[in-house]
Design a protein around this nucleic acid. Structure first.
Lengths: 320, 320
DNA sequence: TTGTATGCGTTATCAA
DNA sequence: TTGATAACGCATACAA
């Protein structure tokens, strides 16, 4: 009752191993009768080729490792969905790694993926400095993160997004606009959103301040700035919590304070359609990342390392 | 510049293949000096064992296939996140398959997973009738779906959830309560939510009607029932779109119509905290599914097929 | 058109 | 305590 293998099929069909392998891979010349016999035998035994053995021989697994903090997030959930889809379309499978934002887990995953002989990695998990990223000559593409100098980054135009968001609030008449972002040390392209905000405010000779997304940033921001009338949140979940805090304080949105988010993922649009946000082209980012990685896999180091930046779009809701 | 293998390490350390394998797996007796030499050689070569070769020999991959419609959804995104976490904790990796609700894709994935020699499968994708589910003796656990008679199902108490939701609307004084659900043919435990709704309404001698979640169900529901004052949606996304349709018509929620959803996933709670909903214990479901599958993998057919049902909870928001 | 023999990188058996 | 060798299931070069 063991899994049938090539030799079982060969025996049943009364041919050699090689012949079965040939019909399986459609290689070389095979007689029609032989082919038929072999197919029947495979059918009867319910034979599936063992990809592990195959991978070992051809030194290729057709597996791509995908490392991100979590699937439990509108942006990453959608990104990973599309990554998997594009991989599948090109014949690659996806080994899913949720790093949860922990560097030790990410390191462990990286090693695991090497051991499992994945053909390449798409990562958007942590920051640079992980030596494995540096040492390995494994094809890697990152999404929305700088990982190492020789690793290409696919992202959307974060600077432009920050600019759009800030200008939008200014056009809406806001005078006291604040920004909320992650720690700058994360070295994500999202820092560009912050740079754009700060530089745009400077250009308009307006005061500005960025709060870091930790602990009770939201409470502090409202406490410390009674005149606040505009918030640019670096993602939609943050925007949501800012709006909740505002409501709790009886501050009307968008009447007293206007709030704009960032990402515009499908699920956010469905659950919170009123939110004004900067939408990233998530599907397109996934597509570029997968195609670039597969190119890297096929062409090796010949492919020049070049970053890809995609346009963003302002979506007008009712919170600004 | 090829990947170093066992024999490279052996050569550098001046020992045999077998010895290296021994220090790698900590098996048998090894001299301290030898062990040290070998470790140094591994270090120097930056050696990683090839899991593919290992898997081939031991006939075990420590990979679990996970088939669901999509990660781009609050419920599945969270479920898959936890599934991956629990797998990782037990030393298993996750091969991610997004079936997109398409039966042909699901069938293809199922075959792919067999070829890749995964140790087991956790699926919640389509309905029964896929013969592979029947034929294969591969360990499978399903979440929230009936797949085949011999496949155990992990789900939450859907009947109780439907009952809670319906009773809640009744207690809130609703007289014309409607329900929205997927096609019954999908044979998901979610049908129990519908059964519970219909039976509870019957028990209270109230008229009831279930709309199927296709096309413009929401428009039709409001058009056809001017007296509507309560809606029990079979998931939170549906609840969201019902509320949007209501607002579009100037119908106040919860003033004129009360709406309760289902799932209560993390992301929904963050983006739409006001929604009253029935919350499923998603993390616990993932935990049970993974542990049950691993038990099945280890004990084989000795493990009795027994379904697992977890309790649900009503979360009071501001939409009812 | 088909078959034989070898090797992919690892683990396990047996002998030294 | 260590080493030579066979096997895991498959694909390829080479021979027939």
């Amino acid at each position: 009752m063991n899994k049938p293998k090539l030799s079982d099929v060969a025996e049943l069909a009364g041919v050699s191993l090689t012949t079965v392998s040939r019909v399986l891979n459609n290689r070389g010349y095979i007689g029609d009768k032989t082919r038929k016999k072999v197919h029947e035998a495979m059918e009867e035994l319910n034979y599936y080729p063992n990809e592990i053995a195959r991978s070992l021989f051809i030194s290729k697994t057709y597996i791509i490792g995908v490392i991100f903090p979590t699937t439990n997030n509108p942006f990453y959930g959608q990104l990973i969905y599309h990554l998997e889809n594009f991989c599948e379309a090109l014949g690659y499978k996806v080994l899913l790694c949720n790093s949860g934002g922990r560097e030790d887990k990410e390191r462990a995953y990286l090693e695991m993926l090497q051991r499992h002989q994945v053909d390449g990695i798409i990562a958007g998990a942590h920051n640079r400095g992980i030596d494995t990223y540096h040492r390995s000559r494994m094809p890697i593409v990152s999404v929305d993160r700088f990982l190492a100098d020789h690793i290409p980054v696919v992202s959307s135009d974060n600077y432009r997004g920050g600019e759009l968001a800030t200008q939008h609030l200014l056009e809406r008449g806001c005078k006291h606009i604040f920004h909320i972002n992650g720690r700058r040390s994360l070295e994500t392209p999202a820092n560009l959103r912050r740079d754009a905000y700060e530089e745009t405010m400077k250009k308009h000779k307006m005061p500005y301040k960025t709060y870091v997304n930790v602990d009770d940033y939201s409470v502090r921001m409202f406490d410390e700035n009674p005149k606040i009338d505009g918030v640019f949140a670096s993602d939609d979940l943050i925007a949501g919590s800012v709006i909740r805090e505002a409501m709790k304080r009886g501050i009307n949105v968008p009447g007293n304070v206007k709030v704009i988010g960032y990402d515009g993922a499908d699920m956010t649009r469905m659950l919170f359609p009123d939110l004004t946000t900067i939408q990233q082209p998530i599907e397109a980012m996934a597509k570029e990342a997968v195609h670039l990685l597969v190119k890297l896999i096929n062409e090796g180091e010949k492919t020049a390392v070049e970053n890809i930046t995609l346009p963003v779009e302002l979506i007008q809701g009712k919170t600004t």
